[in-house]
Design a protein around this nucleic acid. Structure first.
Lengths: 230, 230
DNA sequence: TTGGACTGTTACGTATCCGTCGCATAGGCT
DNA sequence: AGCCTATGCGACGGATACGTAACAGTCCAA
């Protein structure tokens, strides 16, 4: 891993517009992004940058994404790097072939940037499950994912499962504004249908829980946008 | 044993990513880790480092894990060292068993790091019924793995085999929340099919046993997540 | 064989939590 | 100010997770 935090991602996509958008979003998510617009450069950059994860377009001139993927999965020193393939086609055949070449996940265009992000994080978690000892902190709030405990100052807070997950999500990126849709994705799960107003209610409950022993409201409402911590 | 405490583990795995992840987790768990990425180095390091336990990948270039295992189990001075084999496929486990290489345990990839850790500790307990220091303690509960006895305060507790294993698992990482699935893996074993609700029942029985002479309930239920000690 | 100890499953009661609705209130725009 | 929309929040019915007693099956020792 890129040492103290930022996971490194190598983004390989030949179309400049899409690549730029993706790079922007990935950086906003806290990734350190290296870009390549063709397979040959990608192969070189893998060795130079040692990325933690690779996002790879399927269709590219010269060396195709699938070819890059196959080569990387053949070399022992790069085999462990998770690869997410992007493809314009939804056909199942492609999916199967993509996974056969050793890609670890597969996203079909047009994809939700948020979904791609989530899958990237999922892959990183899979390879590096070591959340051991990590305690999330923000101001006087401490959250230990391992013991599932939340403290504010010295007091232990009691919160329900959804409140807990919500707080984890917010604390993973303090200051960042999450839209209701993003929170639904991240906390509730991708394919659950619930009203976006439900998020408001749970934020309210989380607020109450966080202030159950006094203290200021650490959750910020950004009108028209969503919620953030601090 | 590595004298003053830290058990020494020799980790043999050719893929750098996986080896790094594992080494990190093992060190976080209190092991002193020596790494090797091939069988030849491993054979040398066994003599130099005298590890307490060896974690060995099955598929490796040149000298395979299975070969290393066989050689080590032939030499009297290394035969006693427990070996845990890692293999990529479930079918290989059968082959390993069939070949009677003498490995002491097997874990199939993708494995839960937690499970691997637990199995390593289990092997150490088996080989090293050492007296001092291995007594698990948490608050007023003391557990001696060797004599299979559990005390609460001064009183001796009587618990069944499953309750005992469950308590051992929980006491090895007090505070940590274990999901029902993890507990099934760690206490019952990976290929046993039992309903996850069975865990609830046994936790209940463990609770009753722990409180048979009074005292507070030391087991914490984390709704939607699992159980933890303290 | 009989009895006891232990296990896994089931069923049911209960406490907690969830998602939605309705209305009050706050913020922004003209 | 007046209007409109977004958000806060209490309340409620329903769903869900958990605790536990009861039961049947297994194993083993007397």
């Amino acid at each position: 891993m890129g040492k103290g935090g930022q996971p490194r991602v190598l983004l390989v996509e030949d179309e400049p517009a899409q690549r730029t958008v993706l790079a922007y979003n990935l950086e906003a998510e806290g990734f350190a992004v290296t870009q390549a617009d063709n397979g040959e450069d990608a192969m070189v950059l893998v060795d130079e940058e040692e990325p933690d994860i690779i996002i790879l377009d399927w269709m590219m001139p010269k060396v195709s994404g699938i070819e890059v993927c196959r080569r990387l999965k053949m070399r022992p020193e790069t085999r462990g790097i998770p690869i997410i393939m992007l493809s314009a086609r939804a056909e199942e055949v492609d999916r199967i072939r993509g996974l056969e070449t050793g890609a670890d996940d597969y996203v079909v265009k047009p994809y939700s940037v948020l979904e791609l992000m989530a899958r990237a994080r999922a892959q990183l978690r899979r390879v590096r499950p070591s959340t051991a000892g990590v305690v999330l902190e923000h101001e006087d709030i401490r959250l230990d994912p391992e013991s599932h405990r939340v403290y504010r100052g010295e007091k232990v807070l009691k919160l329900g499962p959804t409140e807990f997950k919500l707080l984890v999500t917010l604390m993973e990126r303090p200051g960042r504004v999450f839209s209701r849709e993003q929170l639904l994705d991240l906390v509730w799960g991708r394919d659950i249908y619930v009203d976006t107003r439900t998020v408001d209610v749970h934020v309210g409950r989380l607020r109450k829980s966080l202030m159950q022993h006094g203290g200021a409201d650490p959750v910020r409402t950004v009108r028209g946008a969503g919620y953030a911590l601090g």
